[in-house]
Simulated assay, not measured.
Amino acid sequence: MPPFSEPTFQERTQMAAKAKQAALKQLKAQPTVSDEVLAERKAARIAREEKKAKAREEKRAAFELVKAERKAAKEQAAVEKAAAEEAAAPPPPLTEAEKKAARDLRYANRKKRRK
């Protein structure tokens, strides 16, 4: 068996040229596509793109709806939290006039009971 010998530069370029010629020959052997087939492919591609665009718009609309619902729920929770904090807060201190009015009411009720 002869020993393996490295191919020279000329041999490598010749092999590359032969491979290129074979690839071109194979490419030229393929049948050409007719205009009708091209038109069908184009129509199918356009229909596919329209379908994707419609699905994308529906998805975007659904997302916007969910986003609006979340925002409304968040606002409602904030209102409820503020109401709960307001209800849990101690009442503001009475003014002198309110204290006097409460005293006068107690005094009037006491007088009524005595009569």
Rank of each mutant, 00 (worst) to 15 (best):
S34M: 02
K51D: 09
P90A: 14
S34L: 11
E75D: 14
K54A: 14
E80C: 05
L65S: 14
E85L: 10
A44C: 02
K67Q: 14
A83N: 14
E85S: 03
A47R: 12
E64Q: 13
A72Y: 00
A82T: 01
A55N: 12
K52M: 01
R48D: 12
D35Q: 13
E75N: 11
K59V: 05
K51A: 14
I46P: 01
A43C: 01
E80I: 04
A61W: 05
Q76Y: 05
D35W: 03
K67C: 13
A89N: 05
A82M: 05
F63N: 10
S34H: 06
A77E: 13
A84W: 01
A88R: 10
K71R: 05
A68P: 06
E86A: 14
K71E: 12
D35R: 12
K81P: 02
K52N: 03
A83K: 12
P91L: 15
A39I: 06
A73I: 06
A62Y: 06
E80P: 03
R41P: 00
E80W: 02
V66E: 15
I46Y: 03
A84R: 12
A53I: 00
E86H: 01
R60C: 00
A55Q: 10
R45K: 11
P90Q: 06
L65P: 00
A73S: 11
I46K: 12
K74W: 03
A43R: 05
A55D: 11
E49V: 10
I46E: 12
K51W: 06
A55H: 04
